[in-house]
């Protein structure tokens, strides 16, 4: 935090967007995959086919507001 030297006001830290980019990209990908399997898989689209994933997370799907049956 070398940039926070002796200013009269409290210096607010910022995180360079270049540092943030890779984290954001990777995590956005992970989020998309997780949200897909919990919220929509084996409903509108099926990967893999069957109903096991759908049924396992079924109540979360309804209660967290995702469209189901």
């Amino acid at each position: 935090m070398a940039h926070a030297v002796a200013t009269p006001e409290i210096q607010l830290p910022t995180i360079p967007l270049r540092e943030l980019g890779p984290w954001a990209l990777l995590f956005a990908l992970l989020t998309t995959v997780v949200v897909f399997f919990i919220s929509a898989d084996q409903g509108a689209v099926s990967v893999p086919s069957g109903t096991a994933i759908h049924e396992w997370v079924h109540d979360a799907r309804h209660l967290l507001g995702y469209p189901c049956h």
């Binding site: 995180i15 967007l17 943030l20 984290w23 954001a24 995590f27 956005a28 992970l30 989020t31 997780v34 949200v35 399997f37 919990i38 919220s39 049924e55 396992w56 997370v57 079924h58 109540d59 979360a60 799907r61 209660l63 967290l64």
Partner: peptide, 24 residues
Amino acid sequence: LGLLTGSLSIATVLGGTVALVAAG
């Protein structure tokens, strides 16, 4: 267990997403 799986998964990825947006 099914409801727990869904709750933990969604809340965890949302927590991470909110944190990264907050970081920005």
